[in-house]
Computed example of a mutant assay.
Amino acid sequence: MHICFISSEYPIWKSGGVGSFLQTFSRAMVQRGHTISIVGIGETHEEMQLVDEGVHIYRLPVAKLPIAKFIANTRRIHIKIKALNAKEKIDIVESAELGLAFQKKIPSIAYCIRLHGGHHFFSESENRPVHWWQGFKEKLSFKNADGFIAVSEYVKNHTAKYLSYHSKPVEIINYPINTEMFSPNLSINVDVNNITFAGTICEKKGIRQLIMAMPLLREQHSELHLHIYGREWFYKDGTSYTEMLKSKYAPIVDTCVTFHGVIPFNDLPKKYAEAMVCVFPSHMETQGLVAPEAMAMKKPVVFSELGPGPETIENYKTGLLCNPHKIDDIVEKVLWFLNNKDKIERIGNNARAFVLQKFNSSPILNKNISFYKKIIKNK
């Protein structure tokens, strides 16, 4: 089977949950004998190509004209897909929510949308209106799809409040976690003062509330330090969200917070291993990879109670859930782990067992292949 993903994210060029999923999923599919192509728009005016453990990645030149850039970029992606299909027949083209809006469909190919979290989905949690143009593109993209994969029950049901699946097949298939890569590492010493966060540095990830929680946490554990790993996020005017945090919360940041920036995906397990507690207080997720990755390493994890949080963690059994909008609740949950270290081993064992059952790569790959065959057959 030849699967072509439309995406500009991949850990080698751009970090993020979608890119991490693509790398884990694509490498595993290649090992099973499938062909994987990933086509996206780059940041230069030249095409770039890369092969990552058998995964073929194409970064196409970005449109030079600012007007109708989305349409121009979409056309370039279609031309590339058409060329790849002529070279080796493509069975599936998959994109995130917006990716099929203006794609000219090739009749022999089945088109799939994986719900990573689109404009409609996040507009509510970010308390902003749906932008007419983004909303129109998303609706058009959904109309063009032959099937949909939801990465959690929550994203499937919540998206359906705003967008129609047009009676096309929809299936819930979790993200696969590389449980060999993310496994307990007893050779690395845990820093008892290390609180770790990983993810994009933006408001919806709850990082501002976590920073504000640090002085309260240090009232009981005075040496605690927050380590932040992830890529920058920028406002529309080009200013950095990270720089805003450093400026607005300077006394806290200067005392007990370090921004490490983006690190290679392969280095992430080491950072989890060093942590005493991993905290991911997202305001909203479709699923999120960081929590189950850290859980697979038997780490104490505080995750958000919102969205798919209850699908990911059972409170006080596999981890802890917090209200990400309430700083006192974040503090309470982190302190529970710090003050109940005798319970961490049991929770860690439960957490890894849960991840092995729910996010195991092999059955998840099987489910994806079966779903792809289903929508191909339905064409």
Results as ranks from 00 to 15, higher is better:
Asn193Gly: 02
Ser183Tyr: 02
Ile188Gly: 07
Asn178Thr: 10
Tyr165Gly: 04
Glu180Lys: 14
Ser164Pro: 13
Tyr175Thr: 04
Thr196Ile: 11
Asn194Trp: 11
Lys156Thr: 00
Pro176Trp: 02
Lys161Leu: 13
Pro176Gln: 08
Val155Thr: 12
Phe182Cys: 07
Val155Tyr: 00
Asn174Gly: 06
Asn193Met: 04
Lys168Trp: 01
Pro184Asn: 07
Pro184Ser: 07
Lys156Val: 09
Glu180Val: 12
His166Lys: 01
Thr179Pro: 03
Val170Lys: 09
Thr196Ser: 14
Phe182Met: 03
Pro169Val: 07
Tyr165Met: 09
Ile195Phe: 07
Ser167Gly: 07
Ile188Phe: 04
Lys168Arg: 15
Lys156Pro: 08
Glu180Asn: 14
Lys161Tyr: 02
Val190Trp: 04
Asn157Phe: 04
Ile173Cys: 00
Ile177Val: 14
Pro176Leu: 10
Tyr162Asn: 09
Ala160Gly: 09
Leu186Cys: 05
Ile173Arg: 07
Ala160Cys: 06
Ile173Gly: 10
Asn157Gly: 01
Asn189Gln: 15
Ser167Glu: 15
Leu186Thr: 14
Glu180Phe: 07
Ile173Pro: 00
Met181His: 06
Leu186Phe: 13
His158Gln: 10
Ile188Val: 15
Ile173Asp: 05
Tyr175Gly: 08
Tyr175Cys: 08
Asn174Arg: 15
Thr179Phe: 09
Lys161Trp: 03
Phe197Gly: 00
Tyr154Met: 03
Met181Lys: 15
Tyr165His: 04
Asn157Ile: 11
Val192Tyr: 12
Tyr175Trp: 03
Asn185Phe: 05
Pro169Gln: 01
Asp191Phe: 08
Thr159Trp: 02
Phe197Tyr: 13
Pro169Ile: 04
Phe197Arg: 04
Asp191Trp: 09
Pro184Trp: 08
Ser183Lys: 14
Ser167Ala: 14
Leu186Tyr: 12
Lys161Glu: 13
Tyr165Gln: 04
Asn193His: 13
Tyr154Asp: 15
Phe197Asn: 03
Val170Pro: 00
Asn193Val: 06
Tyr162Pro: 05
Tyr162Gln: 00
Val170Gln: 09
His158Ile: 06
Pro184Asp: 06
Val190Cys: 12
Tyr154Lys: 09
Thr159Gly: 10
Phe182Leu: 03
Tyr162Ser: 12
Pro169Asn: 07
Asn174Pro: 00
Pro169Asp: 07
Ile195Glu: 00
Asp191Asn: 15
Thr159Asn: 15
Phe197Lys: 00
Ile177Phe: 08
Ile177Pro: 03
Phe182Asn: 05
Met181Gly: 01
Tyr165Pro: 02
Ser187Tyr: 09
